[in-house]
Design a binder for these strands. Structure first.
Lengths: 249, 249
DNA sequence: ACCTGAACACCGTTCAAGT
DNA sequence: ACCTGAACACCGTTCAAGT
C-alpha cells in the first residue's frame, strides 16, 4: 500500500483502475474506510480527479457490485433446477465471502444495474427451465431474497468478540457473566451452549455459518419442490391467505 | 416541528426526551436525517448537550432499537408453537412497518442490548415450549434470521419509482424502455408482467410485500414442522452435509 | 449537574481554474 | 481532456469553560 502513490501519479487514471482500487481498499481496510478522499489518496491523486471516471460515490458502489456479479459462476447445466440453483447460490456465497463489504453494499443498493438485472434474469431462467410456472417463480424468488446472493443477514452475529485492544477479562469474571446471562436469558443460554458443544469449540466461538446457510437454503428448495409438484398457484393461496402447504395450527 | 425549539429550551433534557425525539425524527425525516447535530437542533439544544444523556451515536441507535422491541406484542399462549410464532412475527412486522428506519438500523446493530436478548430469549422459548429440541431450535432460529424481526431484505426493491422532481417520461419513451427491457431481460420481464397482472395494478406498481412475507414465513414454518415431526437432528445432517428433507436432485 | 463554544479531524461535492 | 485548489455545507466527538 506504500509506494503506490508515486507509481500511480505517472499512470493515467481510468475507470478500471478506480474500481480495482476501490475494491482492494474495501477488501483490505473495510467498507467504512472507503471514502472518496481516501480512495483518491490511495491512487495518488486529488479527490476531485475521481469524478471524471465515476459520477459520484453511489455510482462507484454500483460499479463495485458489478465487479462482484462478474465473479459469480454462470449457471451449471444438466443436473436439474434444484442442483443448478443450489450450486449457483453457493458460488455467489463464495464470492461474497471473499469480499466482506459486499453484504452491506448490496443491502444499500437501490439501483438495478445491467449486471444485476442480468444475474437476476438468468436466475429466474433457471426456475422456468425447471418447469416452474411464472407465478410460482415470482413468489419463490421473493422467498429466496438475499439468499440468491449467497447471504442472509445474521442479525447481531458478532457477539462480544473480544476487542483486540480490550484488556483480557479475568476467567472468574467471565464465569460470573455467563451465570448471570444464563439466569436472565435461560433459553438463549441453552441454545448457545448446545451449539458450542456441538462444534466441539470454545464457548462463544460461534456457529458454523456455512451449515446454517445450507440448512435454510435446502429447507426452502425442498419447499419449492413440493409446491411445484403440487401445482401450487397464488390464486388458491391468496383469497384466504392460507399457509402454502398446510392448513395451519 | 416549529416552535419546539423554544419550548424545549425551558424543559430539562433527559434520556427519554432524547430517545423520543430521535424516533420521531427518524420516523418523519428518515434515518439519514438523524444526525446528532440535527437532533440537538430539534430539541433546541447545542449538539454536545446530548452527550450527557447518551454515550454516543451508536448507543443512541441501540436505545432506539429497544424502543422498537418494547412495541412488539408478548407471545400469545395456547394455540401451539406454529400459530404463536406466526402471530409474534407478524406483530414484529407491524412495528417495523410503523418505523421505516428500523430495518436499516437493525441490520447495522452488532451489540445485543438486554431488550434484544430478552426478545430473542422469549422467541427461542416458544420453539422449546412447542417440544422442539435445543438442537433443532438453534438451526431453525438461524433459518428464520431477520424474519424474526418481521422483515427480509428485498434487494433492489424500489425499482425506478418515479422521482417526485423528475419530469414525467412520455408514454412512448416508456413503452420503448419496456420493449428494450423485455428483449434484454426476458425472464425478468415475464415475472414482472405476471405480477403486475395478478395484482390488477399498474405496471411497475410492485408486489404485495405482505403476501410475499407470509408466503416465505409459512414455507419455513411448514418445513420446521416437518423436521420436528421427523425427529431431525444435526448429527444425521452434518457429516454428509445433505439437504434436510430430501436426497437431492 | 448540566449545558455551551470553539475546535479537530473528517465527509461528499461544486465551481473555477490550470495544463 | 484530464487534473487541481479552494471552498461549502455538512459529520461525530474532545476538551475546557461556563452557570
Amino acid at each position: 500500500m506504500a509506494g503506490q502513490a508515486e507509481e500511480g501519479r505517472r499512470v493515467r487514471l481510468n475507470r478500471e483502475r478506480v474500481l480495482a482500487a476501490a475494491v482492494a481498499l474495501a477488501d483490505e481496510a473495510g467498507i467504512d474506510s472507503l471514502s472518496m478522499r481516501r480512495l483518491a489518496q490511495e491512487l495518488g491523486v486529488v479527490p476531485m480527479a475521481l469524478y471524471k471516471h465515476v459520477a459520484n460515490k453511489e455510482e462507484l458502489l454500483d460499479a463495485m457490485v458489478d465487479v462482484l456479479v462478474a465473479e459469480i459462476d454462470p449457471p451449471a447445466g444438466g443436473a436439474g433446477w434444484k442442483s443448478a440453483i443450489r450450486q449457483r447460490v453457493l458460488s455467489a456465497r463464495r464470492v461474497l465471502l471473499r469480499h466482506p463489504w459486499a453484504r452491506q453494499v448490496l443491502e444499500s443498493r437501490t439501483r438495478q444495474t445491467p449486471a444485476v438485472l442480468g444475474y437476476t434474469d438468468s436466475f429466474i431462467g433457471m426456475f422456468l427451465a425447471g418447469g416452474f410456472s411464472v407465478d410460482l417463480t415470482h413468489h419463490v424468488m421473493h422467498a429466496l431474497g438475499s439468499r440468491m446472493w449467497g447471504f442472509t443477514q445474521e442479525l447481531f452475529d458478532a457477539p462480544a468478540g473480544p476487542k483486540a485492544d480490550a484488556p483480557a477479562v479475568p476467567p472468574e469474571a467471565l464465569a460470573a457473566m455467563f451465570r448471570q446471562m444464563a439466569e436472565r436469558y435461560p433459553n438463549v443460554a441453552r441454545v448457545a451452549m448446545a451449539a458450542a458443544h456441538e462444534e466441539g469449540s470454545v464457548v462463544g466461538h460461534g456457529c458454523d455459518d456455512q451449515f446454517e446457510f445450507e440448512f435454510a437454503l435446502d429447507l426452502l428448495l425442498d419447499g419449492f419442490e413440493r409446491l411445484h409438484q403440487q401445482g401450487w398457484t397464488s390464486r388458491q393461496a391468496k383469497p384466504a391467505r392460507m399457509p402454502p402447504a398446510s392448513t395451519g395450527t
